[in-house]
C-alpha cells in the first residue's frame, strides 16, 4: 500500500464574482492529477510559477478542499475522517513552508513553537519529557538547544527554516510536504538545509513531497520527480530520467533553460520557449503546452494527451510519446 495516493485531484478556485457575489470564472489550479508516494520515499515536484504546486501540497494536507478526486493517506480518504481520527492523520502529515518569517509566531519562543504539536497530540507528556523531546529535536536539526528560550526574530533565515522543520518532526509524521523551503536561502545556507533534509530522510524514514522550482536542488533530494504544467503532470519518472534524459518537450525546455555551472560540460541542445505560461483561468485547448511547444502539430491543438507509461517506466503526456 502506498503512503499517499492522490487520484484525479482537481482544485478549482472560484474568481471574479458578479454583482450577486457568484463566481464568473474558475482558476483550474490543479486539474486532474494523480500522484503516489511510498513510505520513506522523496518525490520532487517542479514546474513554473502558478502551475499549481503549492495548491497540490495544500490540498494534500487539507488546507485546501478538493473540488473533485481523492487524497488517500495511510489507506484512508482524509475527507471521510472526523474527530480523533482526523487529528491523528493530520499529525502524521506535516507541511513546511517557504517563508520562515511568516510561518513562525513571533510572540512564541522556539521551545513553545516546537512543542505545540506535542501538547496537542500527546497531552499526557510531562513538561520535563516535553523539554527533553524539544531539545533532542533541536539537536537533530542542527540547532543549539540552549537557544530554546529565544524568539524567531533572533534567528537567521536558515535557522528559522530549521525551526520549521523541527516543529514538523516533533509529532513524528510519516510524510512532510516541503513547499519551497530552501528557495529564499543563500546557496551556502541552502546547502546546509538540503543536507539536513537528506540526513532526515535516511535516519528517520520520513517520506517527503519536495516542492521547488530549482531543478538541481530537487534532483539532489528526490528519488522520483513530477513535472507539472498548468495543473497537470506532464512527465514523471526517476530523478535520473527526468534530469538527464527528459522526454516531454516541456521538461526538455525546462532542463535546457537551467544555466549550467560547468562550461565544459557538453551543453544539452538549448531549447528556447517562446511566449509565457498561459493563464489557468483560460487554459489552452488540447495539450496545455501546445501554444509554446516547438513540436506541436494539429492533433495537439484539439486532443488532450493522456499520461502514458513509456518503455523505460516513466510517464509522459504528449502525443509524440508512448
Amino acid at each position: 500500500m502506498n503512503l499517499l495516493e492522490v487520484e484525479e485531484l482537481k482544485v478549482h478556485f472560484p474568481v471574479r464574482p458578479d454583482w450577486r457575489g457568484r463566481p464568473t470564472a474558475h482558476v483550474r489550479a490543479v486539474d486532474g492529477l494523480n500522484l503516489s508516494i511510498r513510505k520513506g520515499e522523496t518525490v520532487g515536484l517542479v514546474g513554473e510559477s502558478g502551475c499549481g504546486k503549492s495548491t497540490l501540497g495544500r490540498a494534500i494536507v487539507r488546507l485546501e478542499t478538493p473540488t473533485q478526486g481523492s487524497v488517500r493517506f495511510e489507506g484512508r480518504d482524509l475527507a471521510t475522517l472526523q474527530g480523533a481520527e482526523l487529528r491523528r492523520a493530520r499529525r502524521r502529515l506535516q507541511m513546511v513552508f517557504q517563508d520562515p518569517f511568516g510561518s513562525l509566531d513571533p510572540r512564541w519562543t522556539i521551545e513553545e513553537i516546537v512543542e505545540e504539536g506535542l501538547r496537542l497530540h500527546e497531552p499526557t507528556l510531562t513538561q520535563a519529557t516535553r523539554r527533553e523531546r524539544v531539545a533532542a529535536l533541536l539537536r537533530d536539526v542542527g540547532l543549539d538547544p540552549s537557544l530554546a528560550a529565544r524568539y524567531p526574530h533572533e534567528f537567521s533565515g536558515g535557522q528559522r527554516q530549521r525551526i520549521g522543520i523541527a516543529r514538523a518532526l516533533a509529532v513524528e509524521p510519516s510524510l512532510i510536504v516541503c513547499d519551497e523551503v530552501v528557495s529564499a536561502l543563500d546557496v551556502s545556507v541552502q546547502a546546509q538545509v538540503v543536507n539536513l533534509l537528506a540526513e532526515l530522510q535516511r535516519s528517520r524514514g520520513v517520506a517527503f513531497l519536495f516542492i521547488a522550482h530549482d531543478l538541481a536542488v530537487v534532483e539532489h533530494l528526490s528519488e522520483r520527480i513530477l513535472v507539472m504544467y498548468l495543473g497537470r503532470v506532464v512527465e514523471a519518472g526517476t530523478a535520473r530520467q527526468i534530469c538527464r534524459t527528459p522526454q516531454h518537450p516541456y521538461t526538455q525546455a525546462l532542463i535546457s533553460a537551467v544555466p549550467s555551472l560547468d562550461r565544459n560540460a557538453a551543453p544539452m541542445q538549448r531549447i528556447r520557449l517562446q511566449g509565457e505560461v498561459p493563464s489557468p483561468l483560460a487554459p489552452p485547448t488540447g495539450c496545455p503546452f501546445h501554444p509554446r511547444c516547438p513540436m506541436a502539430r494539429e492533433q495537439c491543438r484539439v486532443e488532450v494527451p493522456r499520461l502514458r507509461v513509456l518503455g523505460d517506466g516513466r510517464e509522459a503526456a504528449c502525443h509524440l510519446l508512448g
Partner: peptide
C-alpha cells in the same frame, strides 16, 4: 555548495 543539475544526490559541501 551549489547543487549541480545531473550530479545525482550526493551531499553538498
Amino acid at each position: 555548495s551549489v547543487p549541480r543539475l545531473g550530479a545525482g544526490n550526493q551531499l553538498l559541501a
